[in-house]
Nucleic acid binder design. Structure first.
Length: 258
DNA sequence: ATGGTTGTGTTACAA
């Protein structure tokens, strides 16, 4: 089965592109970020017509996450626990197709240092806590999404230009390593080591044409999911189309686990 | 060269 994650930068602005891609790529489970729509206006019908079950958590203008699945969806969990005052729609989780999956839109954190960066780090602390609980279940688990982290300089086209940016700062990278060291496997990196592999290109300055990209979208797997991993990649095609998102889908394939 | 682009929703903010 194919599982993909895609920051779509507005599900309403991107809907034709998303439908095209779902029909050609035929993913079984899709983790979406930056849907930028309140739940009442989420475009359910065109996606349900493609035989996907849907869950979503949105807010006005910003953020927003969703999960699409060809399988039934159970045990839905809305929002990242650990801060009852956090109203930003950045986390949704469920059990589907025998896998527990979460769609994650980790805070960008710029400008850094500052309040937004502090929020990013505290959000990562909460994600580490949640991940410990999920890993204790010893079941197939995929935590996928826009992590807004380049784990090392290999994930940056021009590392010197990004020194000090919230996507590359040492505290954020340290939290990401702490998360990984709980026992997660980066699906894409298991098959695609080395520099020059990106999932995001800025809209400005012809970044896509120059391949000035970043790798900030990641699929992180529990041991029980990683044991069944058969492949992973980035589908660059959607980034080259008309009216694209600034991100493109990252995907992995795992053997059916149920 | 202190720029450039997109989306939401206003004439700013977030990315």
């Amino acid at each position: 089965m194919k599982i993909a994650s895609w920051n779509v930068n507005s599900i309403r602005a991107r809907l034709p592109r998303i439908i095209d891609w779902l029909q050609s790529f035929e993913p079984d489970i899709v983790l979406l970020q930056e849907t930028k729509v309140v739940d009442e206006e989420f475009p359910r019908e065109p996606l349900e017509n493609l035989n996907y079950k849907l869950i979503f958590l949105g807010q006005k203008s910003y953020n927003g996450v969703a999960i699409l699945s060809k399988f039934s969806i159970d045990e839905v969990y809305f929002g990242l626990p650990g801060d009852t005052n956090d109203v930003q729609a950045r986390y949704i989780e469920c059990l589907t197709g025998g896998i527990r999956v979460a769609s994650i839109y980790l805070p960008n954190g710029n400008p850094a240092p500052g309040k937004k960066y502090d929020y990013k780090i505290s959000w990562m602390r909460r994600l580490i806590k949640r991940t410990k609980i999920l890993l204790d279940k010893e079941e197939p688990l995929i935590l996928g999404g826009d992590y807004n982290i380049c784990p090392t300089d290999q994930e940056v086209y021009d590392p010197e230009k990004w020194v000090g940016d919230a996507l590359c700062r040492p505290e954020a990278r340290s939290c990401f390593r702490e998360l990984m060291h709980l026992g997660l496997t980066d699906a894409f990196r298991a098959y695609n080591p080395g520099p020059g592999k990106y999932s995001y290109w800025d809209y400005t300055g012809g970044a896509w044409q120059k391949d000035f990209g970043l790798l900030i979208d990641h699929l992180l797997l529990s041991p029980e999911a990683a044991d069944n991993l058969t492949g992973s990649g980035i589908d660059r095609k959607p980034r080259g189309k008309e009216k694209p998102s600034d991100h493109t889908p990252v995907w992995c394939e795992i053997n059916q686990v149920h």
